Each structure stands twice: as structure tokens, then as C-alpha cells.
Amino acid sequence: MTVEEEQRYGDEEGDGPGGGGASSPGSGILGVFGRQLKRFREWADHDRTAFGAMTGYSASTIASYEQGRRVPPPRFIDLADELLGARGVLAELKEEVARAQYPAFFRDAAKLEAEAVELHVYDTHVINGLLQTEDYARAVFTMRRPILSEETIEERVVARLARQGVLLRKPPSTFSFVIEESVLARPAGGREVMRGQWEQLVLCGQQRNIDIQVMPNKREEHAGLSGPFTLIETKEGRRIAYVEAYKHSRLHTDRRTVRELEEQYGLLRAQALTPRESLAFIEKLLGET
């Protein structure tokens, strides 16, 4: 189905290439890139050891890239394209390869997120990925069950931090986040990790294009009891909602569904602490540690 329709993403997050989807090694875009990389390497008459030395990677890492078992970073793709004389064939796959870093169910949502002019998020379990520190992100992926491999954890941490570039884009987009107080109180990764995360939230909340609001536990009225979601507005003016649920995350573009979630979000912002009150609340947490 296209993004112009309601979409349903993979039933399995899985631990495949790039840490997502039910894809097996060598399938999908990573398989296509890997086969092209191997073809150009062999045409250039380099074995994996020699090519690895040229690029600064081990022969085993080159093999992983060629077999579609690992996601190559953009700098490697650009270097490989240049050294192998691929004339842009490898480089033009860079964007699609980068998307393979995300779980299958999130890849199209990540593309929309990267292009959004407005993004409004309600979180109930963890700090949103756009606001996470490296240590907090690693703790979140380490705690995930079923257990992820160390390699997958590192790939997902890198991908999560790369997403945060949208916060610095020029001209700036508009971001708002409503976060449950319970999320801030949960010391994911330990007290020091959480302290670093609180500091990150304060820094982000001081940016003029970013509003962070805390939903207090003591609120008697709460418009978001049905769970977390994200509202996205594209530069073309399309409004899309991303609703995350176990094994069944969806993008919604039908106006009725999006309008319902917009109404929920408006009420949530009214019920939560104001951005200024929220920063003061987080600073108080910092002062208590």
C-alpha cells in the first residue's frame, strides 16, 4: 500500500540486517548493495583484505557488507564508490541503505519524520528517540526482549542518533513532545544515565523550535490513555499520524483518524505542565540527584 493510504508494517520487528524486519541476510536493499559492492570490488581486482586496508575496515566487515548482514555507514559507501570507480552506482543507494538501519515497521515513518515541517509526539514508555542521549538509547536497546545482538544494538544506537539531525535543520522545523512523568522517574540504565538524559531534555527544551511538556502523574483528567502516537505534517501540508503498537505499528492518513489524534494531542498539551513549568520540573529532578 502507498503512504497515501493507511499502512500496516511488518508483524515482526526481528533481528535481521540493520536490526529490523523479517528479512534474512542478503535480502532487500542490503542484499542489492552488497552484490553491487562485491561486483565492483572484483572488477577492480581487489580481494577483501586489500580493499579493507584501503577503506580502513577489516576483511570480515567487508564480507558482512557484501553479504547484506551489516548496514554500511554513509562514509564507507562514498569511499567505496570513489575507490572502486562505481560512478555513483553505490552512492545513489546510500539513502535506502540508511533506512535499513531501522526496524522494518518504522522505515517509512522515519522517512516522513526526516522531512517533516512539524512533529508532535506523545510518549508513555521511554523518552522519544529524537531526544535520547547515546547512553540512554543503548540502555533501551539493551533491555529489549527478545535480546538483540551487540552488533544490532550498536547499529540501532547509531541510527537513532542520526535521526536527531532533524532537530538542527535549517530552516528549523517545529517540534513538541508530551512526556509522562513516570517516564522521567524510571532510571533506565541507572541514575547517571538518567541524569545525562534529564540534562539533554533541558538543553533541547531551551531551543525556540522545541517544546517539551511533562504530564504529571497526579492529573485526574488525561486524554491520552489509549497510548503513544506521533503527528507529522509534511512540507506539502499533508497531516499523518504514526501510532506505535507491539507488532502492528501504523501510519494513518485518513482525515478522520488524524483529526481524532490531533484532538487528543491538543487536550494533552492543555492538561500537561507548560513548557516553562516542565523545564523547571526537570531541573528540579537534576537538583535532587
Rank of each mutant, 00 (worst) to 15 (best):
R163D: 11
G205F: 12
R160G: 06
E92M: 05
S226P: 03
V121Q: 05
I212T: 06
F105E: 01
F105I: 05
R219D: 08
A110G: 08
G205T: 02
K170H: 15
W198F: 14
G88F: 05
P146Y: 03
V183C: 15
V97D: 05
S226Q: 09
R195C: 06
E221N: 01
L167K: 10
L112K: 12
Y122H: 03
E192A: 09
R145V: 03
V157Y: 11
D123Q: 12
G196Q: 07
K94R: 01
K111G: 07
T174D: 15
E192T: 01
G190V: 00
T124N: 13
A104T: 00
I147T: 13
L203V: 07
T152F: 15
V126G: 01
G165D: 12
L225A: 10
A100I: 03
Y102N: 06
M194Y: 13
A114V: 01
H125D: 08
T133C: 12
I179F: 15
L167W: 13
R138L: 03
L119M: 15
V126S: 08
L168D: 14
L90H: 05
R144Q: 10
G129D: 02
L225Y: 14
V89R: 10
L131A: 08
E115M: 10
I210Q: 03
D211C: 02
P172N: 08
H120S: 07
L168F: 13
F175D: 10
S176M: 04
R138N: 07
P171G: 12
N217I: 12
S176H: 09
E192G: 02
R138I: 00
V183T: 12
A109I: 03
L130E: 08
Q101R: 01
L90S: 04
E134V: 02
D135Y: 09
G88D: 04
L130Q: 09
M143N: 07
E134S: 09
N128W: 04
L225V: 03
I212Q: 08
Q132R: 06
V140N: 00
E192W: 06
G196K: 12
I210A: 02
L184E: 15
E150Y: 14
S173W: 13
V214D: 14
L161C: 13
E154M: 11
R138Q: 01
D211K: 08
V214G: 13
E199V: 10
F105D: 00
R208Y: 10
E181A: 09
R138W: 10
P146D: 01
I127W: 08
A137M: 09
Q132S: 07
R145Q: 08
E155H: 06
P228A: 05
D123A: 03
E199P: 14
L168C: 01
R138H: 10
V166C: 15
A86H: 05
V157C: 08
